[in-house]
Design a protein around this nucleic acid. Structure first.
Length: 485
RNA sequence: GGCCCCGUCGUCUAGCGGCCUAGGACUCUGGCUUCUCAAGUCAGCUACGAGGGUUCGAAUCCCUUCGGGGCUACCA
């Protein structure tokens, strides 16, 4: 029996989680769910100068919002915690000491300045910059001398001659010659651990079986494997690696602040649905193999396999995300749509959230559902139903003050006044009979004038439905008001 | 510079030696529908980076080349 699959997502929250992080998290999660395995969430906060509590909490919040639930990690706990590396310092210290004792690692007394000088020289000589092994085999006298100078040492892993090979699930057989993998630092001079130590130790201790991560970590894999060896892990207990291709910005550079929106918080504020974001991101670097594209989270889990992940990088395309978001919004039930819409309307101060307002919003949602691609468009679309100080947008004013329009409005007023059952059918029947048939006007001209008078804009939800929602009193008073302009 | 990864329409992709005069989706263009805007629907544009091989046959295999990206930290 093969062991149960455990996939981990281990971000280093040095800022808000961005699109690339989330795509990785999504794949990690989907793979765990697909295989019936465990999804583990770990915070890599060994770089205390860059990771903050605020970012950690934001990361937790973002994953929850997206619906990527984890089985082990912050808040939910688990048998292999703690899941914040900053709380596991003693564990790393133990292994670092052991590595030194085993001579797998050694103290390096070179100062940052000296190392930089070496690299500078290497660059000048057109050589590959990298640690030159200066402190690999210091004598006791040399060590004593350094100590007398008061030098603090880092712990460096000794890379043996030879190479490392491993099978990447996405890229196949990978081979790295140790000539190009210099001895690397495990522990800083102040005693704090580095990612290089912590990832490897944690993946083993937390019994992670599959490491799916960004391809930027591909060339650091031999270092992780070196740590497994030093830990005495047997080959069959090494995690399996799969290096995901990048998500890039429009100009082919890595996605960044200046190159497309990266922060998931931005997408949330804009009114993208989590399911749309996940659906779109899943299609970046992966496809189910057939022509299916509109997938629910459930279908995603059922269909997702690492083998189907592409090896080439993908460009982020906002237009396609928008298209998918529009699809997802249209697929929402009215109750769900209402739940998503309300916060946007309240935040924009279109409504306060009162019961009668919510009821009206609920009636109005069906007519705007197929007209928006983002939830943030809702306030502008429904504003006309709620504004106290109604005013026609300046750029459309002329279309309602011209004499032809005046005739249309005057006639409309006359025809609408007697209507007792204020429904869009009755409104439409009355206006069509008078404006189109009797006055012989083109619908777009006639209805255009009424639209501007009642909704304040040339663009609105369907006119008759809008007027029904607005109510008879408000509709008539707005038309009457337009007549006086 | 060195090491590594990658290369099919504008974009995301299907394709894993013959089913490909390369399919789907988004975008774009045009038509239909139509009270505006959408939605829907129909049609169209556009791709195997280049050059060599291997083969009866290559987008699919090999080599070279060009192009893009990553790593080369006491970041992750």
């Amino acid at each position: 029996m093969s062991k149960k699959i455990k996939v981990r997502f281990a971000p280093s929250p040095t800022g808000d989680l961005h699109v690339g992080n989330i795509r990785t998290a999504l794949f990690d999660w989907a793979y765990a769910r697909h295989t019936g395995g465990t999804f583990l969430f770990r915070i890599e906060d060994t770089d205390t100068t860059r990771v903050t509590d605020e970012y950690i909490n934001a990361a937790i919040d973002t994953l929850k919002w997206l619906g990527l639930d984890w089985d082990e990690g912050p808040e939910v706990g688990g048998d292999n915690g703690p899941y914040l590396q900053s709380q596991r310092l003693d564990i790393y210290a133990h292994w670092a000491a052991k590595f030194i004792e085993q001579k797998d690692a050694y103290h390096c007394y070179c100062s940052p300045e000296e190392l930089e000088a070496v690299r500078e020289a290497q660059r000048a000589a057109n050589q590959a910059p990298g640690y030159n092994g200066h402190c690999r085999d210091l004598t006791v006298e040399q060590i004593a001398a350094y100590k007398t100078q008061g030098r603090a040492a880092v712990v460096r892993m000794r890379m043996p001659d030879g190479g490392t090979t491993f099978n990447d699930l996405i890229r196949g057989e990978m081979a790295f010659d140790h000539k190009f993998v210099p001895d690397f630092v495990l522990v800083r001079a102040d005693g704090s651990p580095l990612y290089t130590l912590a990832v490897a130790v944690d993946d083993i201790l937390m019994k992670v079986t599959h490491v799916l991560r960004g391809e930027d970590l591909l060339s650091s894999t031999p270092r992780q494997i070196r740590v497994y060896q030093a830990m005495g892990v047997s080959l069959e207990d090494y995690p399996v690696f799969a290096h995901l291709p990048f998500v890039m910005g429009a100009d082919n550079a890595k996605l960044s602040k200046r190159n497309g929106e990266v922060s998931i918080a931005w997408y949330r504020d804009k009114g993208f649905l989590p399911e749309a974001i996940c659906n779109y991101l899943a299609l970046l670097g992966w496809s189910p193999g057939d022509d299916r594209e509109n997938l629910t989270m459930k279908e995603l889990c059922e269909l997702f396999t690492v083998e189907k992940v592409n090896s080439s990088p993908a460009r982020f395309d906002m237009k396609k995300l928008e298209a998918i978001n529009g699809d997802k919004i249209r697929a929402l039930t009215i109750d769900d749509f209402l739940t998503w819409a309300l916060p946007f309307l309240i935040k924009a101060q279109v409504i306060s959230g009162a019961e009668d307002e919510v009821a009206l919003v609920k009636r109005a949602l069906p007519i705007i559902q197929e007209r928006i691609i983002m939830l943030s468009e809702i306030p502008a679309m429904l504003k006309f139903l709620f504004v106290k100080d109604f005013a026609i947008e300046p750029e459309s004013l002329s279309k309602v003050t011209e004499s032809g329009a005046k005739d249309v409005l005057a006639r409309s007023l006359k025809e609408l006044e007697p209507i007792t059952d204020w429904t869009h059918e009755a409104i439409e029947a009355a206006l069509r009979a008078s404006l189109i048939e009797e006055m012989g006007l083109k619908p777009r001209i006639a209805f255009g004038a009424v639209r501007i008078a009642t909704t304040g804009s040339t663009i609105s939800p369907p006119l008759f439905e809008s007027m029904e929602l607005l109510g008879k009193a408000a509709s008539l008073s707005r038309i009457a008001a337009a007549l006086t302009l």
